[in-house]
Design a protein around this nucleic acid. Structure first.
Lengths: 232, 232
DNA sequence: CGAGTCAATTGATAATTATCAATTCACCGG
DNA sequence: CCGGTGAATTGATAATTATCAATTGACTCG
């Protein structure tokens, strides 16, 4: 891989604490690849050959059942994905596709599993990343089971705003039907939910969403301090 | 803690590979406690003081939102729970209550985090356990997003049967409303779903459910080999 | 600049799930 | 053995969400 890419990847929490020597071993065996939009990187059921690190672009993790499919997560740069499949060396439970042209670092799975065993700091970060991922899943599942669609949307907007340092103006990454699938609803219902939120401090102009009355949205969506709290 | 309890706990994958010396350190600082049914062990938002290991009994992990609540998992012996909260040292995202009188081992959180850092084998098992837990969550979320309630029930029965070595006769642990909540439906709809499955090879007598026609149930529920596959 | 394409919206209807209200059933204690 | 308590079931209705169909809107390509 190119030298210039390394610093931002090495800054990832996962790789930040490991021994330089081991990092060198991992990085020199990895390669960076550019994929066009709408390309399937891997499918459910395949064995993981690599750990993936999204350096630039946008990637969707999704699952399929018969003719339906559902977005499980949207991966933004810079972050790794499918660590759990790599650690357990079990088939993927999700498929991945690029939403935009994306640069991805591919780290050979066997090598990485080996280095994880040898480098305690790396293992600890892998453990932490899995714990954080697990907790994220708990949040998402709770969100699905305990809230209805418009509430989910409201809380999603509040959380996005929080992530962006409280910005009241949000620009959607990707299409609205993607967001709909992520939130577990149809595109039609997302449209209706967005207009329903107009009464609760949200205004929409295309892919640009503005929270005009934060308090009103909070009153409607009732975010939970723990469930919707931002993980460190 | 009593000596007699240790062997079965030490056999847990989590503690199986660690150094005997470290295990001794952990176990001797832990204590075993018996809780009556319907007792809250901890609530959402509390910081984890212990890792919990259920030795005997039955425990429910659940979440709350306003006046609704939902069962997230049912913990059967012998297994540990809330490892992710312990590792991240973040507040619980789920509450726990005993469903039956339960014996629980309490391992001090600070100590265990410390030992995890020192014992590579333990850390590796913790990492693996978190990865397996993450994957379980992915399955559950997919199940919720992609299937409707009667299908979820059908697949639940198939999976339970598989777990019990293909037994066609299943005895429910706990009440039906618990199962309903776990599957994300109301008790009323669980009743209706169970009677709907009568046409697809399932017969019910109280808490005793029999799969009378496995193929018919498979045809109806369409289990996915990966999603519903049993993790090693 | 206009046709074509696809996302997004809107309206109408259907399916699914939840809620409310009775019973019925099972089990326990007196 | 009887009455009481709460789970489970059943039926009727309401709320939520999905589906189907049509239209609008935005953008690209020739």
């Amino acid at each position: 891989m190119r030298e210039g890419e390394r610093p931002e990847i090495a800054k990832l929490p996962l790789f930040a604490e490991m021994k330089e020597e081991q990092r060198e071993r991992v990085f020199s065996a990895s390669h960076l690849q550019v994929f066009p939009p709408q390309l399937i990187l891997f499918d459910v059921g395949q064995k993981p050959d690599f750990l993936y690190v999204l350096v630039d672009g946008l990637i969707e993790l999704f699952t399929t059942n018969g003719d339906r499919d559902s977005t499980m997560a949207i991966v933004e740069p810079v972050s790794s994905f499918i660590l759990a499949a790599l650690v357990t060396n079990q088939p993927f439970l999700m498929s991945a596709r690029t939403l935009q042209s994306s640069r991805v670092m591919l780290i050979p799975a066997d090598l990485l599993r080996d280095v994880i065993k040898q480098d305690g700091a790396l293992m600890q970060e892998a453990m932490r990343e899995l714990a954080v991922g697990y907790r994220h899943m708990v949040r998402t599942l709770t969100d699905m089971k305990l809230r209805q669609s418009t509430e989910r949307l409201g809380n999603f907007l509040l959380l996005e705003s929080h992530k962006r340092n409280g910005a009241m103006n949000l620009q959607l990454r990707g299409e609205k039907k993607l967001l709909a699938s992520l939130l577990g609803m149809t595109p039609e219902n997302l449209s209706r939910a967005l207009s329903a939120l107009a009464k609760h401090g949200v205004s929409v102009a295309g892919g640009n969403i503005t929270i005009t009355d934060h308090d009103a949205l909070v009153t409607f969506a009732r975010p939970d301090p723990f469930l919707d709290g931002v993980e460190v």
